[in-house]
Nucleic acid binder design. Structure first.
Length: 556
RNA sequence: GUCCCAAUAGCUCAGCUGGAUAGAGCAACAGCCUUCUAAGCUGUAGGUCGUAGGUUCGAAUCCUACUUGGGACGCCA
């Protein structure tokens, strides 16, 4: 637990005791004490609305209640400097300054670990994301999900959860057969055969590249084989090549998985029929029109869903149910799926499956990633200029860079559509929030290296009392709240809170930088203290950027 | 028709568990480099929080209806 949290805990406790002591409410009636950090500094460091909340219980005016609480509160215990009652009945607390004193030493001690907490208590969470069909490569739509899933995982890990990142490979369905036919057609075309590309095949350039690679390796070897043999080889080749592409693109985007789960393994030991059997035993299965149905309406879905078609094949849903059963059987405390918005209609039936398998509905949480619209030169970019197809993750990385891409993707709530301005992401100016934040980090690094070359005491004991200016106090409060920000962002699955936070911290740093001089030979004591502050701010910015997978450059 | 998401300054967006005078950046206007990086800072101006009800001491925030934009509604995957 960090310094600010301890302070809050203590204060909350003293407020509760004061309420009980004044007889305003009994222990059972006592509402949860809510502390907030007022925006306006004249409202103190913390404020509580407890007096308003107690108005009905105590049947007294809020201001009078506040008065009675303030009279009996133990100011020394909670390190309170001053208390004021304001507005409709807010109690404002001004804390003793020395509480901030621990912040810098804590950060300097924890270094890379600063910001982590044990809020998640080691609970096992699995985050499944991207999971694109291995039939081509990753495009824009997948990139946002990749950034979101990866950062969410990092946040959960930092907040003390035991996190596993998983990619589900759809390598068993009919889409893989389609891939096989597509590669085969391109292969035969490469060899000059008069073959039509199937209408519903995959037309991307990657497929042609695969065909060319096969020709380069094997020449016309597969021309002579039977169609079955050739198709089988083409399918497997396409699958492996697609996966290689996807894995490479993701790795370059700094996204790595703990586990790549193959759909095929579900077929190997009857996991799908077993899952269906379990649903049947629970009474959620019936036969109609020659098909097998799953009663998802029992759990709030619009209509029941077919899981075994008239022709005896499974629908898309069936192996997915088995997959989720497999995940649940692995003992995770919680499953998170990151899906594109075009799959949201699928959420209800998956939730139904979870419950029908005997698990509580909140065991699985599906995060829907809304669409991304690309803009360049003020115009909406519909297709890639290079390929005429959807813009790929790789193109985006090459066009705007990894840092900016990742930052922009997680800077917005997953529930909101995202307008991605390529010009802005690429611009090296103050308009670009990524550069703004990175520049703050680089600025500090410059100061610190200058401090060393100019012979200032960079590791000395510093006197906290030297840090008295308003901007220094604001910086201290801000860096002190970082662990709480990380925990909140993890809890709410809201990476954008981290980008907001680090942007605000950078802003405070720039403001401080322009107002005060850090390295001042005429004031060595103050300089030592400010160097310590700068180190702490640098660590906090670097850790925040690291969480969202953005680099923290030392020079720009 | 049903379901999901969104709607806040001219533009792009924050706004935490309902809290005090709704905040940034860009664009506009006025300033700041002899000084640790001006990729920066300071100030001015800009708002019926989509509309209408409701809950509450208090609503941008919660509830209901509606409007607009986007998406989804297959024995496809």
């Amino acid at each position: 637990m960090n310094v600010l949290e301890q302070t809050e805990q203590k204060l909350k406790q003293e407020i509760s005791e004061a309420v009980l002591k004044s007889g305003l409410a009994s222990a059972e009636e006592l509402p949860e004490i809510i502390l907030e950090k007022p925006k306006d500094k004249s409202h103190g460091d913390f404020a509580t609305n407890i007096a308003m909340q107690l108005a009905r219980i105590a049947k007294k005016a809020p201001r009078q209640i506040a008065d009675e609480i303030v009279k009996v509160i133990n100011e020394t215990e909670a390190s309170i400097e001053k208390i004021e009652i304001a507005g409709p009945g807010f109690i404002n607390f001004f804390m003793k300054n020395d509480l901030l004193e621990q912040i810098i030493p804590t950060i300097l001690r924890e270094q890379d670990n600063y910001g982590k907490s044990d809020a998640g208590k080691g609970k096992r969470i699995q985050v499944e994301f991207v999971s694109v069909n291995p039939t081509g490569d990753l495009h824009l739509g997948h990139a946002r999900g990749a950034a979101y899933g990866d950062v969410l995982s990092s946040l959960l890990a930092a907040a003390g959860y035991n996190v596993e990142r998983e990619y589900y490979i759809n390598d068993a369905g009919s889409q893989i057969d389609k891939l096989g036919f597509s590669v085969e057609a391109r292969y035969l075309q490469e060899l000059g055969e008069d073959v039509e590309m199937p209408e519903d095949g995959y037309h991307g350039q990657v497929i042609i590249d695969m065909a060319k690679a096969i020709v380069a390796e094997d020449g016309n070897k597969w021309l002579e084989k039977s169609h079955e043999e050739r198709f089988e080889y083409m399918k497997e080749y396409g699958l492996k090549a697609s996966l290689r592409n996807i894995e490479r693109d993701l790795k370059d985007f700094h996204v790595e998985f703990d586990n790549w789960f193959s759909e095929r393994t579900l077929y190997e030991d009857d996991q799908i029929p077993n899952a269906v059997q379990q649903l049947k035993e629970s009474g959620y299965i019936y036969e109609k029109d020659g098909a097998t149905w799953f009663k998802t309406t029992e759990f709030g879905d619009d209509k029941d869903r077919v899981i075994i078609k008239q022709d005896g094949n499974y629908t898309y849903l069936t192996p997915d149910i088995a997959y989720h059963k497999n995940k649940l059987d692995r003992g995770f405390d919680k499953l998170i799926n990151v899906w594109g918005s075009d799959h949201h209609g699928y959420v209800a039936r998956m939730n139904a499956a979870i419950q029908a398998l005997g698990y509580p509905a909140d065991k699985l949480e599906v995060k829907i990633i809304q669409m991304v619209n690309l803009f360049e030169g003020g115009e909406k970019v519909r297709m890639s200029k290079r390929t005429g197809k959807a813009v790929s993750l790789r193109e985006l990385m090459e066009e705007v860079g990894i840092d900016a891409t990742r930052y922009f993707f997680v800077a917005r709530s997953n529930d909101s559509q995202l307008d991605f301005d390529i010009d802005l992401a690429r611009s090296q100016s103050n308009e670009n929030p990524v550069y703004y934040v990175q520049y703050a980090h680089a600025r500090i690094c410059t100061m610190l290296s200058q401090a060393e070359t100019r012979g200032f005491d960079v590791n000395g004991k510093f006197d906290f009392a030297e840090l008295t200016s308003e901007k220094e106090q604001e910086l201290l409060m801000k860096i002190g709240s970082f662990p709480q920000t990380v925990a909140d962002a993890a809890e709410k699955h809201a990476p954008q809170r981290v980008t907001n936070y680090v942007f605000e911290l950078a802003s405070l740093l720039h403001s401080f930088y322009n107002a005060e001089k850090v390295l001042d030979a005429d004031a060595p004591e103050r300089t030592t203290a400010r160097i310590a502050l700068m180190k702490a701010v640098r660590i906090t910015i670097a850790n925040a950027l690291n969480l969202i997978g953005v680099t923290a450059p030392e020079k720009m």
